[in-house]
């Protein structure tokens, strides 16, 4: 009944988003270290180490190939992490949402605000990697900056499913399954480390249903200058995942909190 209606998007979402950014600001230094440290490790370790043997991939230096893929996958992991561990903490043990719901804000505002926040964190990590990539000389000109809004969209697209998981979880253990069964396979299969065209035909079809594949196509096109043949399709898939998962997450979080 009450749960089966479309969520509204209102300014209240920004109040929830603002709360999170105020907390984040308090831990700015460690947060920044995480943002720069992890991708730097990947790029230097894998990009240089593996790149030494691989040489070029898909017509570009392996470091450029990897950096442009990691921007997308890092947005995925950042948004997923925030949408599960942090959201669950605020939803269950910390009862932050219970407190918020005693104000004029609604479940829709909380879910929209949290998704915006997850996407914002994804954005921070994306920018960090872009900076590292630029410093290492593998970003292709100013058009690479277009990746910034794309990374935000990628964040939204993974924030929704993560929040769905949070609304279904009873403990944190639940999230390990999602990482092992969903996030890690995408990380490995969706073209971050090698072009998806090298996968067997049967697998390739399935891989094109996964959002990270489309995210990687976009980031690689924008950052590394790879050919972008279907940007609209890629954007539409990401936006579709974000919208549908928002509607479902809002419904499930409402069912969980408004009992």
């Amino acid at each position: 009944m009450n749960t089966l209606r479309l969520p509204r998007i209102r300014p209240g979402a920004l109040y929830v988003w603002r709360r999170n950014i105020l907390v984040w600001r308090k831990l700015l230094i460690p947060a920044m270290l995480m943002n720069f440290g992890e991708p730097l490790l990947y790029l230097l370790g894998l990009g240089f180490g593996l790149g030494h043997f691989v040489g070029d991939m898909a017509g570009m230096p392996y470091l450029a190939f990897l950096a442009s893929g990691i921007i997308a996958s890092s947005a995925m992991t950042t948004a997923s992490f925030e949408g599960m561990y942090s959201v669950f903490t605020r939803m269950v043990p910390q009862k932050t949402y219970e407190a918020i719901l005693a104000t004029p804000l609604d479940v829709d505002d909380i879910v929209a605000g949290e998704m915006l926040w997850c996407a914002t964190k994804a954005l921070f990590s994306g920018i960090a990697i872009l900076v590292v990539a630029a410093v290492l000389g593998v970003a292709q000109g100013w058009q690479a900056l277009w990746v910034v809004p794309v990374v935000f969209l990628v964040g939204l697209c993974f924030a929704g499913p993560a929040m769905i998981m949070s609304s279904l979880a009873t403990t944190y253990d639940f999230f390990s399954y999602y990482f092992v069964l969903v996030v890690t396979p995408m990380f490995i299969l969706c073209g971050v480390f090698y072009p998806v065209e090298t996968l067997p035909e049967a697998v390739r079809g399935a891989v094109y249903l996964l959002p990270l594949t489309h995210a990687v196509h976009l980031t690689r096109g924008l950052v590394a200058g790879a050919e972008l043949t279907q940007p609209v399709l890629h954007l539409a898939v990401l936006a579709g995942y974000a919208l549908v998962s928002y509607v479902i997450a809002a419904m499930l979080v409402r069912r969980k909190l408004m009992v």
Binding site: P11, Y15, R19, L22, V23, Q94, K95, E98, A99, A102
Partner: peptide
């Protein structure tokens, strides 16, 4: 509420300011 749900990430005064922000 029956059980306190103060925001552990904020100080006493920040708790009030952030809560006020939820009312706009």
């Amino acid at each position: 509420p029956q059980a306190d749900n103060l925001d552990p990430d904020f100080s006493v005064e920040e708790n009030l300011a952030v809560y006020a922000s939820f009312f706009g």
